[in-house]
Simulated assay, not measured.
Amino acid sequence: MADQEELRLTVEVAYAKPFEQKILSVKVAKGTTVYDAVRLSGIVNLFPEINLETAKLGIFGKAVPKPQERELKAGDRVEIYRPLIADPKEARRKRAEKARLNKLG
């Protein structure tokens, strides 16, 4: 019979705000999904602004399109992404325009 520890994985769940971040180590059963690991970690209790139903989730910087289906492997770090407050292309355009104006004097 398999040892209970063999049926468990250690993963991390991470969330970061501009001036605060938290990485929680969580033991989960084999077959646990990305979504379930976040729920089981309790990180939503620490950061109540996280809406688990709409939050974008990923593993090591790569978005997971179906977090309720993607099973985790030992050592995975699940990341909870905050919504963007500005369109990156628009922000880049504004910086370039500002730099151009500064250069002109």
Rank of each mutant, 00 (worst) to 15 (best):
L72C: 07
L52S: 09
A16K: 08
E5L: 14
I43Q: 00
R77A: 04
A55Y: 04
E71N: 07
G58Y: 01
A63L: 14
L72E: 11
I59M: 04
T32A: 08
I80T: 03
I23S: 03
E71K: 14
R95N: 06
E20D: 15
A74H: 15
L46I: 10
F47L: 02
P83W: 10
N51R: 14
E6G: 10
A16C: 05
I59Y: 03
E90H: 10
I80A: 10
P67K: 11
A86C: 04
K66N: 14
I85G: 00
E71C: 12
E97F: 11
G42W: 02
I43E: 00
L24A: 02
P67G: 10
P48D: 07
K17M: 15
A86N: 03
E90L: 15
V78H: 06
D36C: 03
T54P: 00
V11E: 04
I50V: 06
E49L: 05
F19S: 11
G75M: 13
S25W: 05
V28Y: 02
V38I: 05
V64S: 06
R8D: 10
R70W: 10
Y81K: 02
Q68H: 13
E79V: 03
R93H: 03
T33D: 08
R93V: 01
R92E: 11
Y15E: 02
R82Y: 03
I80V: 12
F19Y: 12
L72N: 11
P67L: 05
K17Y: 12
R92N: 08
P83D: 08
L24N: 00
A74D: 15
A86V: 07
F60R: 03
P88W: 08
P65C: 03
G31S: 05
K30T: 09
D87S: 10
D36Y: 05
A29L: 05
A29T: 05
R95G: 01
G42T: 09
A96L: 15
K94A: 15
G61V: 00
A55N: 07
Q21I: 00
L52H: 00
E12G: 14
E79F: 01
P67T: 05
P65D: 02
I50A: 04
K22M: 06
A37W: 08
I50R: 02
A55C: 02
L40T: 03
D3K: 12
